[in-house]
Simulated assay, not measured.
Amino acid sequence: MPEIHEVSTLTSKGQITLPKSIRQALGVDTGGKVAFDLRGDEVIVTRVVTEHEDPAIGAFLALLEADLRAGRHIQALPDDLAKTMLASIDHPVNLDDDIAGEVAL
């Protein structure tokens, strides 16, 4: 990783803006997470790699977590959907393939 020296100003709320060059070098974008480690008088900033970086998956998992914490129970999948999913487990998927048939949204 290239050496970069940037300076940020601490706000009255204890916040700083992570400089663009640092965000780019770490590969962190809006909603990304960083960790701060204090080592002596230095702070080391690293990107936190989450299990699901896809914002749609992250939002879905957050929704599920909120429902579970609120005590709402998730209903079982319909049998036909569960069987189709289980039958597809060992089949490779190419997300760039065209979808065959009609899709109802």
Rank of each mutant, 00 (worst) to 15 (best):
102 E>G: 12
22 I>Y: 00
9 T>K: 13
74 I>W: 00
46 T>D: 04
23 R>N: 08
32 G>V: 04
57 I>A: 02
18 L>V: 15
103 V>Q: 04
44 I>M: 11
2 P>Y: 07
59 A>E: 03
13 K>C: 06
68 L>Q: 10
9 T>L: 12
34 V>Y: 01
46 T>V: 08
49 V>H: 12
61 L>D: 00
1 M>Y: 07
6 E>Y: 03
98 D>T: 12
75 Q>E: 15
4 I>Q: 03
97 D>E: 08
14 G>Y: 03
75 Q>I: 12
20 K>A: 09
54 D>M: 01
43 V>Q: 01
17 T>V: 15
66 A>V: 01
6 E>T: 11
75 Q>F: 05
35 A>M: 14
92 P>C: 07
100 A>W: 05
77 L>S: 02
93 V>H: 02
32 G>Q: 03
101 G>C: 05
15 Q>E: 06
2 P>I: 10
85 M>A: 14
3 E>Y: 12
42 E>M: 11
99 I>F: 09
1 M>H: 12
3 E>M: 10
44 I>H: 08
76 A>E: 11
59 A>H: 00
68 L>E: 06
1 M>A: 15
87 A>R: 15
87 A>H: 10
21 S>W: 05
77 L>H: 01
83 K>L: 13
16 I>D: 00
102 E>Q: 09
65 E>P: 00
75 Q>A: 15
3 E>R: 15
5 H>R: 14
